[in-house]
Design a binder for these strands. Structure first.
Lengths: 261, 261
DNA sequence: CCTGATGCTTCCGCAATTCAAAACCGTCTC
DNA sequence: GAGACGGTTTTGAATTGCGGAAGCATCAGG
């Protein structure tokens, strides 16, 4: 029953990988070293290993590391197997088409929301490949929709992982106020993002629940405040709930996110 | 200057990860064990570690492992940083729109072709998210276009990684015949897939070269034999080359794939 | 041309992790 | 209830990973 037992070298390597990808641009070892918990030679060795394994690519000229293409191909399998996207695709396409609004499909991972698919009704461009983006759970519609329906211990664990950074004036900054809202969301069945993550962006989100009531993800309609008000979004509630129910029914036989005790 | 020094636990863990993703469906340990080079307890431990790290997800009911969502989020960074896709996106969109044909953008990784972006002029659906798919280099248009322009040692290394499975009657089955074609391709500047990977599917591909002549990827127009002939595809040659040149020029300042000696 | 600063790379002895045989346990089958 | 099968745990040996310290390049200013 190890709780936070760090499992060895692999964990370290992955944390370095995370650090590099989080930088969002090619980085030199020096920069990593400043933040890294590892001493220089260790960090160096891990970078070497990851580069050899093509999880990172190394630019000899600039002496910089960046995420490697191997990740892209790994993710293909992950996306088509581990995500709700293949199941949900037809449903959210239909919803996007009928409402002419942008639909997001998200799942939770380690306290963060991961967007696994998107549909943009209008502008044909831009939609692609923002898949995989992550965002905090505590200040997004989909995030709160999921959090509200987690089991007690999973929820507690997820809450501990929230940073509660104040992105806007409306952002929750503590677990207490968030918890109160989560209860309302659970009762209501719908979550709103009231410009909590980004000023001018609001959303309405519904959890995707299996027959047994386990939450496996969420869908949302996101829009700008100059297009819709919160009340306006509320008009989409029935359609959104219907769609989530459809996906939930099909997701029945589906892989659990394996929350370890 | 270690050449093929296997670097430790991380390599082993990643090879297990590869194995799981390669299965294309949730798998039990038993199945992995049959193919695995590792003894049972070792495999078990690696699976544990990967699961703890959320690189795999574990289904308690079925006792199966599948790729984890963490991969999806990792890949997002990889895609937006390590791939040509962001640079190439506007160009291939334009090309797809003007020719009304499906465009593929690919890079090479470890002897395999990785599709990093796609555009489908027609059928709006289906295009999404096949990104990340891999295919052999020796029997695809993009693959041969890239192979033909690699440096000698990189090419030799890549050739050694080809399996030369005979997918169709037209598939190359040895390095010799392939090499001969690669020379032609290099001279011609264009590669064709003559139903070598899949019967009924042909393509025309152009390498993406930087100013210094380094190949960083390839683009192709793929189609079915009932829509176009090879000669017909040849009509797209100028447009394809133009597009590849545009991308190549912009890709100048770009991360090298770091082929270790 | 020297000198100091910076940042990457290599050495190497110590110690911690990993390894895998063997044994164990839970479940399912006949 | 015996046997088979697959998953899990234990455990001592030893391979690896670790990281302080020293060694190199490269560059800037004197």
């Amino acid at each position: 029953m190890n709780v936070v037992t760090s499992d060895g070298t692999v964990a370290k390597a992955l944390s370095v990988l995370d650090q590099v990808t989080a930088m969002g641009r090619p980085v030199r070892m020096r920069e990593l070293l400043e933040t890294s918990e590892f001493p220089k030679p260790t960090l160096y060795r891990l970078l070497q290993t990851l580069t050899n394994q093509r999880m990172l690519s190394y630019d000899k000229e600039q002496q910089t590391y960046a995420p490697g293409i191997r990740l892209v191909s790994l993710a293909h399998s992950a996306w088509s197997q581990a995500s709700l996207a293949p199941i949900a695709a037809p449903h959210i396409s239909a919803l996007a088409a009928s409402l002419r609004e942008a639909i997001h499909l998200a799942q939770i991972d380690n306290g963060q929301v991961v967007f696994v698919d998107k549909r943009q009704a209008s502008n044909r461009f831009e939609t692609l490949a923002r898949t995989g983006q992550v965002a905090p759970a505590y200040c997004t519609g989909v995030g709160k929709a999921i959090l509200a329906h987690l089991s007690d211990d999973a929820q507690a664990q997820a809450l501990r992982q929230q940073a509660f950074l104040k992105y806007t004036g409306a952002t929750h900054t503590s677990a207490e106020t968030l918890l109160r809202e989560l209860e309302e969301i659970r009762a209501d069945g719908i979550a709103f993002d009231r410009e909590e993550h980004e000023v001018g962006i609001i959303s309405i989100a519904a959890p995707i629940l299996t027959n047994v009531g386990r939450v496996v993800g969420a869908i949302s309609i996101a829009t700008a405040t100059n297009r819709h008000t919160l009340d306006g979004l509320n008009a989409f509630r029935p359609a959104l709930l219907d769609c989530a129910a459809l996906i939930g029914a099909e997701a029945q036989s589906w892989q659990s996110p394996s929350v370890p005790s």
